[in-house]
Computed example of a mutant assay.
Amino acid sequence: MHSALLVAPPYLDPDWILGPDDRPGEHFPRFVHRERLPLRTIVVASRTDPWATYEQSATYASDWGAELVDAGDAGHLDTAAGYGPWPAGERLLADLLGRDPRVR
């Protein structure tokens, strides 16, 4: 069974161009896949993520045919923001995999 848990995907503006503060030679995607994904997908989005508004994340989820999980006022969900063990994420992953989240 294939599935995807996408946590805090950044919004990529289709009109974005490399700016003076961006590292030269770095490769950035020029587009985001905007069609339904052929697998069960969950998108987790924060209401205060600096890399994507909740509405942008909701649009991605809709385009991808994904379930949208509202993480609330969580900022950007990554280790740099201080996130470590994440029981709610483990439960989402267990759900995607069809497992009992209480069993490891």
Rank of each mutant, 00 (worst) to 15 (best):
M1F: 14
H2Y: 08
H2W: 07
H2C: 07
A4T: 03
L5P: 04
L6I: 02
P9M: 08
Y11F: 08
L12Y: 08
L12Q: 09
L12W: 00
D13I: 01
D13W: 03
P14C: 05
W16A: 06
W16H: 09
I17R: 11
L18I: 09
G19L: 06
D22M: 06
R23K: 11
R23V: 08
P24H: 09
G25H: 05
E26F: 06
H27G: 06
H27E: 14
H27F: 00
H27N: 07
P29G: 11
R30M: 01
R30W: 02
V32K: 01
H33Y: 07
R34G: 07
T41F: 03
I42Y: 14
V43Q: 13
V43G: 12
V44M: 15
A45L: 00
A45D: 04
A45I: 05
S46Q: 05
R47F: 00
R47C: 03
T48I: 01
D49N: 00
D49E: 01
P50L: 04
P50A: 00
W51I: 02
A52W: 04
A52H: 04
A52V: 05
T53V: 02
Y54R: 14
E55N: 15
S57F: 07
A58R: 14
Y60G: 03
A61S: 07
S62Y: 14
S62W: 09
S62P: 01
D63T: 03
W64F: 11
A66E: 02
E67V: 01
E67H: 03
E67D: 14
E67M: 05
L68K: 00
L68Q: 02
L68H: 00
L68W: 05
L68A: 03
V69F: 10
D70C: 13
A71T: 03
A71M: 04
G72M: 08
G72A: 13
D73Q: 13
A74I: 02
A74W: 01
G75D: 05
G75M: 12
H76A: 08
D78F: 13
D78L: 12
T79G: 13
A80Y: 08
A80V: 15
A81V: 04
A81S: 12
P85I: 00
P85N: 11
W86Y: 15
P87C: 06
A88L: 09
G89H: 13
E90Y: 11
E90A: 09
E90F: 13
R91F: 14
R91K: 15
L92P: 07
L93Q: 03
L93W: 06
A94E: 11
D95C: 07
D95A: 10
D95F: 02
L96M: 04
L96T: 05
L97S: 01
G98A: 10
R99K: 11
R99W: 12
R99L: 12
D100E: 11
P101S: 00
P101V: 03
R102N: 13
V103T: 14
V103K: 04
R104C: 06
R104M: 09
